[in-house]
Write a protein that binds this DNA or RNA. Structure first.
Lengths: 257, 257
DNA sequence: CGTTCAGTTGACCATGATCAAGAGTGGTGG
DNA sequence: CCACCACTCTTGATCATGGTCAACTGAACG
């Protein structure tokens, strides 16, 4: 299996063999394993190195003084945890492991070296940064405008497509290790309500969830339920699951003007 | 008055006289005026140039198919409207004028030139990009976790400090041309509820709003009401209004620990 | 001087929160 | 191997924040 970062960056641009070798080197340098539910780094700390998720899920989150927690993004294999450290001197949010996590720790110097010598990679990294900003925007829309059912459906669509883009789906299935509490913190709902809403999604045959495993039997239906439009992910290899193909299908069905 | 972009970037880094001259040149090149409520660019369009707000307010927003609208950020003088165009080929959101707007339109080539020749400016621009990403994160927290009153108080604090950092405040006052409908779309509330909540803020003497003018007589109190912590703005010149000074004041008061 | 748009108010409603308790599952150590 | 603990998921009853709908006021502007 090709490494997830390479795969992810190639979503944006073609890399040369040399680029790929360099990325593999970066990834192999220094890897660490983090137990589930441990923080990688906390709000207020000075970032010391750059983390690349190799295996498992993490989340970016902020907490309010009174304990309320908001997950602002999930991080999956191939995701770099913020280029912040090159510019901002303090973390404005925390990064926590959801599952057991394998991360590559890339130190500043090494990274600067790559940035200097491999312009393709640099551009691809900025692409990733801008895409993750676009994902932030979509999350604002999600918690600001969508109903509980739409929010959760939307989250499932997003994570499925993001996992797919790094080769971590298997037909209609993917791992989904976030708990209902995590989903609640990501969608601005309570875990009780998430529970009821997931049941509703199940009842409508939009998803099945068996422990850590999510199945989406009809992606088009789930996207419709979540008002999901994948454009914001800026994936190049848009595939059968996209909004476009839904339009196409609607046209073929003749059910819509 | 020094131009807002320079002032804003100097929030992050000291610029040389040459940098400043270059920025002034960029800004003066080609300016256009947009009437209120007109879109600068729409979701799905290919960005052709880079906009810099010189005067007035704009907003970044997304709409859902059924018309629901979410404002994901406001743009004020000194804000660059997304470096996206250099990397992403389609706008994933729209930018609309709130007031009459003066913007500088900077074309790709010219901008590339600056980036090549003025590394200080380039870094400062990426700083701005990362800060605006951090603001996105805070907005997710805002709509996801805070109550109506907290959300609006938080928005007022944020905009006041952002305006202050480009010299657009006047003592306790600043312009605030967003309507209650805009505030509603930015906070994920309805305009009816925004109206009632703003009245509540007024009743508690946390703000006064007389037409387009916002006054915050006690910034510390408003920050407390909105659970506002300015760290996420990554301003260097933190001033009397910051969270830190609140802690200091609490210590002086002797009311806490 | 009417038209438009922002702001305001009231009555009623619904989505999702809160509180509390119980069931299933997995891991750990005696 | 089993008992216990912790955590996740589930369910029920009740409540509250904020939404909906509708009408009215007042200022701005041509």
């Amino acid at each position: 299996m090709p490494n997830a970062l390479t795969r992810r960056l190639e979503e944006y641009t073609a890399l040369t063999e040399a680029d790929r070798r360099e990325l593999a080197k970066l990834t192999a340098q220094s890897t660490l394993t983090i137990p589930p539910r441990r923080d990688l780094i906390r709000e207020g700390e000075a970032p010391h190195s750059l983390y690349l998720i190799l295996d498992g899920w993490a989340c970016h989150y902020r907490t309010l003084e009174d304990g309320r927690r908001q997950i602002v993004d999930f991080a999956i294999p191939g995701d770099l945890c913020d280029l912040n450290l090159f510019i901002l001197d303090r973390m404005d949010h925390s990064i926590g492991a959801i599952t057991r996590l394998k991360v590559a720790e890339i130190d500043r110097e090494m990274f600067h070296d790559v940035v200097r010598k491999f312009p393709n990679i640099t551009t691809a990294l900025w692409w990733q940064e801008l895409v993750s900003k676009s994902i932030h925007r979509e999350w604002i829309v999600n918690v600001g405008q969508r109903t509980a059912l739409e929010r959760i459906a939307h989250l499932f669509c997003e994570m499925f497509l993001r996992l797919e883009s790094v080769g971590l789906t298997d037909g209609f299935c993917c791992d989904f290790p976030a708990t209902q509490v995590d989903i609640a913190d990501a969608t601005g709902l309570t875990s009780v309500h998430v529970n009821r809403t997931v049941q509703e999604l199940r009842r409508r045959d939009l998803v099945t969830m068996d422990r850590q495993r999510l199945m989406i039997p009809d992606m088009v239906a789930l996207q419709t339920a979540g008002l999901f439009n994948p454009e914001y992910l800026h994936h190049r290899r848009l595939n059968r699951h996209t909004h476009f193909s839904r339009d196409a299908q609607t046209r073929l069905d003749g059910t819509v003007g």
